[in-house]
C-alpha cells in the first residue's frame, strides 16, 4: 500500500460542494434506446439492400451496383452501432459481422421471396430522379443491337434461323450458329440473350446465346 491518502473524503467533499448529482437515468435509457433504434434502422436498410441486390442479381437489373454499395455501407454502419451497445464487447468483431450478415441474408431472402424488391425498385424509379440511370434495367443494356447485344423471346423457329421478339415488341430474324452457353435451348417462348452483330434493320447474326436469367447474366462485366 502506498502513501495513505484520504481520497474518499476528498471526493465526497467535492461532490457535496460542487452539488454534483448523478446524471438522470432517462438520459442513459434514451441514449441506449436511440442506439438500438439507429442499429435497427441501419439493419433495415441493409435488409432492403440485400433483397434488392438479390433481385438484381437474379437477372432483373443489369448489375445492382448502387444497391451493393448500400449493402456495404449499412453492413459497416450496423457493425459500428452494434459495437457501441453495452454488451457488444463480449463478442468478437467477426462474430458481430457474421451475425448481422446472417440476419440480413435471412430476412433479405424472405423480403425477396415476398416480391417486395421489384415493387420498391418500381417505386424508386417513379419517385427518385436518375434512379434508373444509377440502377439500369438489364433489359435496357441487352436491347442494344448496334453494340452487339440483343434479348427477347423466341417466337418462331425455321430451318436456318429463328424469329425473336425483343422487349420492345420488335421482331428480329436471327441467323448464324450461336454458341449456346448455360441451360438454354432454342424453343418457342424461350427468353434469351444474344451476342453478335446487327446486319440490317431487323437481322441479327448471333454468335452466342445465353438464357435470359441464370448463367451468363454478368456478360456485361466480362466484356
Amino acid at each position: 500500500m502506498k502513501k495513505k491518502v484520504n481520497i474518499s473524503d476528498k471526493a465526497l467533499e467535492l461532490i457535496s460542494k460542487g452539488q454534483i448529482k448523478p446524471i438522470p437515468r432517462w438520459e442513459f435509457v434514451a441514449r441506449n434506446w436511440g442506439l438500438w433504434l439507429a442499429f435497427l434502422v441501419s439493419l433495415g436498410f441493409l435488409i432492403l439492400g440485400i433483397s434488392v441486390s438479390w433481385f438484381g442479381l437474379r437477372g432483373n437489373i443489369i448489375t445492382p451496383h448502387l444497391w451493393l454499395v448500400i449493402v456495404v455501407i449499412f453492413l459497416g454502419l450496423s457493425f459500428v452501432l452494434f459495437e457501441k451497445t453495452k454488451r457488444a464487447y463480449r463478442f468478437q468483431s467477426w462474430q458481430v459481422i457474421a451475425m448481422i450478415s446472417v440476419i440480413g441474408l435471412i430476412v433479405g431472402g424472405v423480403v425477396f421471396k415476398l416480391g417486395l424488391p421489384s415493387r420498391i425498385d418500381r417505386r424508386l424509379e417513379a419517385g427518385v430522379p436518375y434512379y434508373r440511370t444509377m440502377v439500369p434495367m438489364k433489359m435496357t443494356a441487352w436491347n442494344n443491337p448496334e453494340q452487339g447485344y440483343l434479348s427477347g423471346k423466341i417466337v418462331e423457329i425455321n430451318n436456318d434461323n429463328f424469329l425473336l421478339e425483343d422487349f420492345e415488341d420488335k421482331t428480329w430474324v436471327i441467323t448464324g450458329k450461336p454458341l449456346i452457353r448455360g441451360r438454354v435451348e432454342i424453343k418457342i417462348n424461350q427468353e434469351v440473350k444474344l451476342i453478335g452483330n446487327m446486319m440490317s434493320e431487323n437481322v441479327f447474326v448471333a454468335e452466342e446465346l445465353r438464357p435470359w436469367s441464370g448463367n451468363g447474366r454478368n456478360m456485361m462485366k466480362e466484356n
Binding site: I7, K10, L14, I20, K21, P22, I23, F28
Partner: peptide
C-alpha cells in the same frame, strides 16, 4: 494516483444511473 482515483470516483458517481 490519488488524482486518478478521485476523478474516477466523481465520474462513477455522475454515472451511477448507468
Amino acid at each position: 494516483v490519488a488524482d486518478i482515483v478521485q476523478e474516477s470516483f466523481i465520474s462513477a458517481y455522475k454515472h451511477l444511473n448507468d
